[in-house]
Structure formats: structure tokens, C-alpha cells
Design a protein around this nucleic acid. Structure first.
Length: 106
DNA sequence: GGATTGACATCCC
DNA sequence: CGGGATGCCAATC
């Protein structure tokens, strides 16, 4: 299945530990600048099947999107274990941890 | 093939 | 980066 979804997955897999990307960024690099929500949907559908590092995908504010606090906490711990430090209890320094792919996908 | 989904982005107050 | 409304797009159902 060669599609937007697959490119999104490829991009997510390229995010190095200790870095994060936003939904909008990923969508843009995958070819749809307005496709942030597709990324969300992909994570829901594919994360378990493809074993994606979904914990490295956050929203534009540098926060985890989860509303469920337990999942939120799990993701937060995952990020902290990769070296990302939270400023408050919920946000990270995007300018410091945001991953800027330059040539990961042709 | 149409309706639903979705952890967002962005504009506007 | 406070909070509500609106727009977006493609995979999934």
C-alpha cells in the first residue's frame, strides 16, 4: 500500500530518539500540508500494527495530545526516558527537541 | 461510494 | 499559546 499513510509511517520511523515531530510537520513532509488529522487517524489505526513510535509525535504546542491522563503519562515517561525534559508538567521545549528532517524521504 | 473518524492547525476574539 | 469555532484531508468503516 503506497500512499500518504505509508509515507507518514516512514517519516515517523525516521524520528530519532530524543526528538519529536508535530502532526502538521509530518503531514507536510508526507505531502499534505493540511493533513495533520490524517496523521492522527493513522496513529490510531496503524500504531499497534506497525509498532510505531507514536510517543514521538506531538501537537504544535509541544504537548501531548492525549486527553486520557494515563496514556498521557505513559507517553510523557517514554519521552523523558529518551532525554526529553518537560518544562512544565505537560509541555516540552519544541525549539530544542523538534526534529527537522531534511532528506530522510526522497 | 458515502459517512464517519480523528492524539491537529489556524484563525479570531 | 488562553479558549472557542472552523477548516482540512485521506484512511477506515
Amino acid at each position: 500500500m503506497n500512499s500518504f499513510t505509508e509515507r507518514v509511517i516512514e517519516i515517523i520511523l525516521q524520528i530519532p530518539a530524543g526528538k519529536v515531530m508535530t502532526y502538521g510537520q509530518i503531514a507536510a513532509y508526507a505531502g499534505s500540508p493540511r493533513g495533520a488529522r490524517q496523521v492522527v487517524r493513522i496513529l490510531h489505526s496503524m500504531s499497534e500494527k506497525h509498532q510505531l513510535p507514536w510517543h514521538r509525535v506531538i501537537n504544535a504546542k509541544g504537548e501531548i495530545g492525549f486527553q486520557d491522563e494515563e496514556s498521557f503519562f505513559i507517553q510523557k515517561m517514554s519521552l523523558e526516558s529518551e532525554g526529553i525534559q518537560f518544562k512544565d508538567n505537560k509541555s516540552i521545549n519544541l525549539q530544542k527537541y523538534l526534529f527537522h528532517p531534511s532528506n530522510i524521504i526522497k
